[in-house]
Amino acid sequence: MSFHIDCPHCGRRPVEEFFYGEVASENESIAGADARNLDRVFMLDNPEGIATERWFHAYGCRRWLTLRRDTRK
């Protein structure tokens, strides 16, 4: 699937210039195998709609961007 990402430094570029860097989340340490941590490690939001994600502009400024993307489009 193809789309464009607006890099705030480089401009509008095809998605192939970027690496997908997972869903943006808070950085917490994981201490034990309780239900909350199980949920955080394995049970994913997988939104059918707006997702907040990190992307790395590998072919341009080599910076991480945080963006919102509609996974249905």
Partner: peptide, 11 residues
Amino acid sequence: FAQGAVAGLPA
């Protein structure tokens, strides 16, 4: 100045 994929290369 501009940068991005040109001929598939990071130019």
